[in-house]
Amino acid sequence: MKLEIRGVNFSYDSRPVLEDVTMSVDEGNVVSLVGPNGSGKTTLLKCINKILKPKKGVVLVEEKDVREMKLKELAKLLGYVPQISVSSFPSTVFDTVLLGRRPYINWSVSPKDREIASQTLALMGIEDLALRHLNELSGGERQKVIIARALAQEPQVILLDEPTSNLDIKHQLEVLGIIRSVVKKKRIAALIAIHDLNLASRFSDKIILLHKGKIYDAGEPAKVLTQENIRIVYGVEVEINNSGTPYIIPLTPVN
């Protein structure tokens, strides 16, 4: 088990956001976290990588309790792609990806660090952008850079928060395709918070459906993405086209 979460509770002040969340992600699996706005997807990701501290419960990465790990140790196991990337200062693509090596670097950049950064760029197909500045890139290219940075950490688990929300359809397919192939090839694990149910359905081994901070349902896409589940959790009437993976066509919101 790459990632295991047991009984995690979290609240902002007194408003509970996560209640008794228990789940796991196996080696070589892509798991999608879906659920409406405010259902706790982002909060759950942040509880895993210690940006937030759960009020209760345990998070284990590679069987190790994250509370007992130093941030630097954890950073070697866990990569993170945030929903919004902030940057006030100019940075080149290569420097940005090299930052992913920060957990391994004390002061100077070793040839190995440079190699890994270059290989990750090649993997994402953005080698030719290496010396460009981040603020000159399109949203899709920039997202690939941020994912490359997380992969340069050589993580066992990669957490992605809405990696496709600002991308055109080609970049959406490319980005999720690369993530899936890396997860399969390197036998790591990915946990992706995502809004697009059809992308989730197509690229995930397992889907976890969050509803008001609790896990409403979990399992294979065809099991979780049902008309009834979506009506109750999202309040939307849908039609589902079940040819291989379920394909969801939203119809009308229900009250």
Binding site: Y80, S85, S87, F89, S91, D95, L99, R102
Partner: peptide
């Protein structure tokens, strides 16, 4: 390096980079 992480990635990314 820590300043690089904070300046280029923001606080949350910095945490995820250790």
């Amino acid at each position: 390096w820590d300043l690089n992480a904070m300046a280029f990635g923001g606080d949350e990314v910095a945490v995820s980079l250790g």
